[in-house]
Design a binder for these strands. Structure first.
Lengths: 102, 102
DNA sequence: CTGTCACATCATCACTCGCTGATACCAGCC
DNA sequence: GGCTGGTATCAGCGAGTGATGATGTGACAG
């Protein structure tokens, strides 16, 4: 048991725009054009963020003619959920587990 | 149904040092001195991060003489876990929920 | 083959944000 | 009261990073 959250994934999701993208992709599988409309960001900007999400293993690409569809990898979110649940369980028992003053 | 993760909390946890602090605090309730030893960071630096964590509502302070103990608020982690679980469930059904090419 | 559209990559700018040192504050001990 | 140790606050610096414009690539339509 590691009981620690993957810092890379959290770091990637720390950006508000990327978190918005992930939230959108949780509902629908979208391509870049859709994301540009939804977020209001420039295509270049989005492409950069999608690259970060891709390299972090959070999304998958699926070419469809000239379009590129992005879809979430649910197991990443599931993993995060479990890791946070584990931490929360630990924290609930750690309240009295207080280290002595030095 | 909100089905979106609180951006502020994620943003705060996006910093590697802060995530390490949270992981440490999940096991024990510690004061600044302990955290300095565990992380190797300077006191000033830690104090800054603790302020951020405090303002984000992730930790609580408990004065004990000259020392200040920090403890996690488990409900924050629980909330995160649930939000990610919700997103994961959505994402699992969204694979075929593909918006048409424009 | 040529033009257009969707998307990715690259280089650059600008700005945020984390780290640091100096300093102030507060509680306990002499 | 004066001193010491633990902690918080402040100002400044510098590296990391998000946003932008120009450009490259690949696919479809004509």
């Amino acid at each position: 048991m590691l009981t620690s959250v993957d810092p890379d994934v959290i770091r990637v999701l720390g950006d508000p725009l990327r978190l918005q993208i992930v939230t959108l992709l949780a509902r629908e599988t979208l391509c870049t054009t859709h994301l540009v409309e939804e977020t209001g960001a420039r295509q270049t900007n989005l492409s950069n963020h999608m690259k970060v999400l891709r390299e972090a293993g959070i999304v998958e690409t699926e070419p469809c003619g000239r379009f590129t569809y992005y879809k979430l990898k649910p197991e990443v979110l599931t993993g995060l959920s479990e890791q946070f649940a584990e931490l929360a369980a630990l924290a609930r028992t750690a309240a009295e587990n207080k280290r002595a003053c030095p």
